[in-house]
């Protein structure tokens, strides 16, 4: 990606909390990132790391209450999405930012035909009439590789298999030719052979349509195959961010390094014993006052318990939030 390109999406210092009876839960803490045109940004993290909540916050899809986006700025095309009115936001969501969710069964409406659901955004946002929308819907189904598209438009979601439903979801997300596509674990519910089909499709569509994509997943293998840049999240924060090759070749954060060592592979060497990350993921609560990974970290020292590390640059486009310097194997100064 050209470094100088103006980002299509610029997120600054995003903070999202949930109000619960047990107090406030700080689910997303000062998350900042940007997305360049045509880029695929992979977001990796375990459940509860805040990756989905971050993306939902961006486009105002979290129910409020209990959720509250407390701080931050989300610049999309010169508009701050966090302060804009609901009407504009709705237009942007339908039109400019597409969304694909994990479970294609629950995100399609079972009582409407697939054709109706693809045509809905076309008619609402693009102002197409019924006939034109139908033609475009058929094109979209063909684009995502569904055979016999004309006839399939009249089918209901339950008549499609899991992989086919996810293709339909992608077709809906692409309907209005969005600038940004946010895909939240789009292949997690699918089998590997179907996942491979969808990944191929996405690579192909990127070339054809040139949109920017945010791809949320917990699967490092998927990331390795499709991402340009990766953001690793842990405990509601970004702990490391780097170009994909750099991240895998030269991980800096103890969590990223441990994570890369713990996943086995079907190729390459086979270890007799899996490396483990001891302990449990953190339970989120009040505002973070220390490093979220400290309880499981092998490099922990006193400063980690007192302060929450800020992100610092360690290379071209590579930053990490850690007080430990992986290169010198010593605490950083200052």
């Amino acid at each position: 990606m050209p470094d100088g390109a103006v980002p299509v999406l610029d997120v600054r210092n995003l903070k999202t909390i949930f109000r619960t009876r047990g107090g406030e839960i700080h689910a997303v803490n000062s998350v900042s990132f940007d997305l360049k045109p045509g880029e695929l940004l992979g977001v990796v993290g375990e459940s509860g790391s805040g990756k989905s909540v971050t993306m939902m916050s961006l486009i105002g899809l979290l129910p409020s209450p209990p959720a509250e986006v407390r701080e931050g700025e989300v610049l999309f095309d010169g508009t701050n999405l966090l302060t804009t009115d609901e009407e504009t936001l709705r237009k942007i969501r339908g039109d400019r930012i597409g969304f694909v969710f994990q479970d294609p069964m629950t995100s399609l409406n079972p009582v409407f035909t697939v054709g109706f659901q693809i045509m809905e955004p076309l008619r609402k946002h693009m102002g197409l009439d019924k006939a034109a929308a139908r033609v475009r819907a058929k094109e979209l189904l063909e684009l995502v590789g569904i055979p016999d598209a004309e006839r399939r438009l009249r089918d209901y979601p339950h008549q499609f298999s899991g992989g086919m439903r996810q293709r339909v979801m992608i077709a809906i997300a692409l309907a209005c030719d969005p600038k940004v596509l946010i895909a939240d674990e789009p292949t997690t519910a699918l089998d590997v052979t179907i996942q491979a089909q969808i990944l191929e499709l996405v690579k192909e569509l990127r070339q054809k349509l040139g949109m920017a994509i945010i791809w949320i997943t917990h699967d490092l293998g998927v990331i390795a195959g499709i991402a340009d840049r990766v953001m690793v999240m842990y405990g509601g924060q970004v702990v490391e961010q780097a170009p994909v090759k750099d991240l895998f070749a030269n991980p800096q954060h103890p969590y990223t390094r441990a994570l890369l060592q713990t996943v086995p592979s079907v190729r390459g060497d086979r270890a007799d014993r899996l490396r483990v990350i001891e302990g449990q993921p953190p339970v989120l609560g009040g505002p973070p006052v220390a490093c979220p990974f400290r309880a499981r970290c092998t490099h922990r020292f006193d400063r980690c318990d007192r302060e929450n590390p800020a992100r610092r640059d360690v290379g071209a486009g590579h930053d990490v939030a850690c007080f430990w310097d992986a290169k010198t194997e010593a605490p950083i100064d200052g």
Binding site: Q195, K245, S265
Partner: peptide, 10 residues
Amino acid sequence: AVPEPDPRLE
């Protein structure tokens, strides 16, 4: 079909 968690091998 299994993705490889290493971009060079992948």
